[in-house]
Design a protein around this nucleic acid. Structure first.
Lengths: 335, 335
DNA sequence: TTGTAGGCGTTATCAA
DNA sequence: TTGATAACGCCTACAA
């Protein structure tokens, strides 16, 4: 591959002049500029961005760490972020951090060693202090879907509590009072928030919180299924299920179907996140919309702002909204 | 951030010695080695991989270009490739190439300017010559899901023709003879291959190919829906639909449902690709499995081989297989 | 075994 | 306006 030296020799000027032409950093006489441009064309010269990065001490890249690249949720995030970042002239280096602390740390450190200019992470398995320390080390950091009080100006989250409340209130409005909640792992703040919203809605409606109706799962389809089985074995009465994400709702749905409970005729079901196939289920799944696109955009804007390229307003706390489809039965008008 | 110079000064040795300790390239006396390691710990020194890349003229990265990052298909590819590449010590730089020639070229050139060591691309919208030229320029290139005769040792594909044939033969075996085919855009080789497989199966069964039963769409849900509508408007007789990918099958399914054809009782439906939500449809979609994991693995192995790190056998042509679920009715045993 | 010095491809500084 | 020349951080002959 041609280097700047080749270009300078072909054009009969110094390397510095070529560099000036490329970056437009200072004025170059018209005829030399033409010569240089001609030489660049001729050699199909492209600046080596590695060398540029070294000289600029800036790579023009943003590292993104998510637990996994597959699946509708993270791939959606990735897709949106890549699009926005590219518009700002940055490119994306991705690393999948699996679901363990060690692996997520490794991914993050890997990206740092790659000298990304900034970091956007969806890291649920590393301690607060670890992230705080990274930020203190000087590298711009944006955390999505997790709130750390000491870093509130670096965290983009959604209001999970509000989301859980809205979902539950909708079920209440439809006449359901015995509502199962399949919650995510309670060591995760988003799972806790959604459960708290459920409790708040019940409390506001004057319904007592009943532990028998609540089962903890781990945000996966399988765990949602076994949580549903567990609840059914308890032989308690319920007319609706609030699964705090769609994957678990799917698992619950399959168990309900197997055991002969039809949805929504006998049991209503509501999910959370509105992942792609929520609308392909029969009945189509009523759920809470997780504003993935917006979160991606806000995260990118925050990163850009931290990189000093721009001043834009950033929403730090996004609002989920109800997506009504066909998996919840209205008990009131039916009666 | 600490540099190798800082480490060398703290340890009281030369930079070369530090470098030797880090890379283990030659023997270093035990006590100096200990001093260096201590200094590295103390300064939390991490080699700057940008500088390493410049010195080694090798970045340790592989560029991946896909039309989009979202969606189950490409994100699956990405996920698998990242996992494998990481095991070989490479990291991934992604770029979404949209669906236009200009955008895909831009993405590829962007990755090249980033000096990735190799390239894996899913590029359907650039001419053969462009890709040939890139390979000739010396950068290791692997092309997935597309066959270019001049580059046969760089292309990982599936046997679309065989897949189309298997799908159609299955419908024939189930007693269907009037089979609609919703094909992808015929300027794409995979769409052509699948259609050809359909024709071959019909030919082998002694059934005449009927253009009235065939409609071209563009591999999207919407286009599949309108192709299905078009066919229905033709008022021809059919008992089964072969959609040459699952997205179009989904679109067709919705139109069939709307217009009162129940699947599979009145119309059988078979797709292609086995994307994630094929199994969440009701009835669960019978389809052809696209071996995404295998393709990702083969592509990575081929890249590794080209990078000279390894000699492994590579399968260049992968075989799709039938996934029987519930969307095809057996006309023979039912009668 | 160790250190010096030159190179990787750019950009930035400073005279000219 | 231009061109040497010194960074940027690291690796690697080569010499000691």
């Amino acid at each position: 591959m041609a280097t700047i030296k080749d270009v300078s020799e072909l054009a009969g000027v110094s390397q510095a002049t070529v560099s000036r032409v490329i970056n437009g950093t200072s004025r170059v006489s018209h005829d030399k500029k033409l010569k240089v441009e001609k030489a660049i064309k001729e050699l199909a010269y492209k600046p080596n961005s590695i060398a540029q990065a070294l000289a600029f001490s800036r790579t023009g890249s943003v590292g993104i760490m998510v637990p996994e690249l597959g699946g509708p949720f993270y791939s959606g995030i990735l897709h949106n972020m890549e699009e926005h970042l590219r518009r700002f002239g940055y490119h994306v280096v991705v690393s999948a951090g699996s679901n363990t602390e060690a692996s997520q740390k490794e991914s993050i450190e890997f990206l740092i060693s790659r000298r990304v200019d900034a970091l956007i992470v969806h890291a649920q398995n590393v301690p607060d202090d670890y992230l705080i320390q990274i930020e203190e080390s000087g590298i711009p950091l944006v955390i999505i879907n997790r709130f750390i009080p000491e870093m509130k100006s670096s965290c983009i989250t959604i209001d999970n509590e509000l989301g859980g409340k809205i979902a539950t209130q909708y079920l209440l409005k439809m006449g359901h009072t015995d509502i199962v909640c399949i919650t995510g792992p309670l060591d995760k703040s988003d799972a806790r928030g959604r459960l708290q919203g459920y409790r708040n809605a019940l409390f506001d409606a004057g319904i007592e919180y009943d532990e028998v109706l609540v089962a903890e799962a781990s945000f996966t389809e399988e765990s949602g299924a076994s949580a549903m089985e567990k609840i059914i074995r308890r032989k308690c009465h319920f007319t609706a299920v609030f699964a705090t994400n769609d994957h678990m709702a799917l698992g619950a749905y399959e168990v309900l179907a197997e055991q002969g409970y039809s949805v929504p005729e006998q049991v209503s079901l509501i999910g959370f996140d509105d992942i792609l196939f929520a609308r392909y289920l029969t009945p189509k799944l009523t759920t809470m919309n997780f504003p993935i696109e917006q979160m991606s955009l806000e995260a990118v804007q925050l990163v850009i702002q931290k990189l000093g390229n721009n001043k834009c307003d950033v929403n730090f706390k996004l609002l989920p909204s109800l997506v009504v489809r066909n998996s919840v039965k209205d008990l009131l008008t039916t009666l």
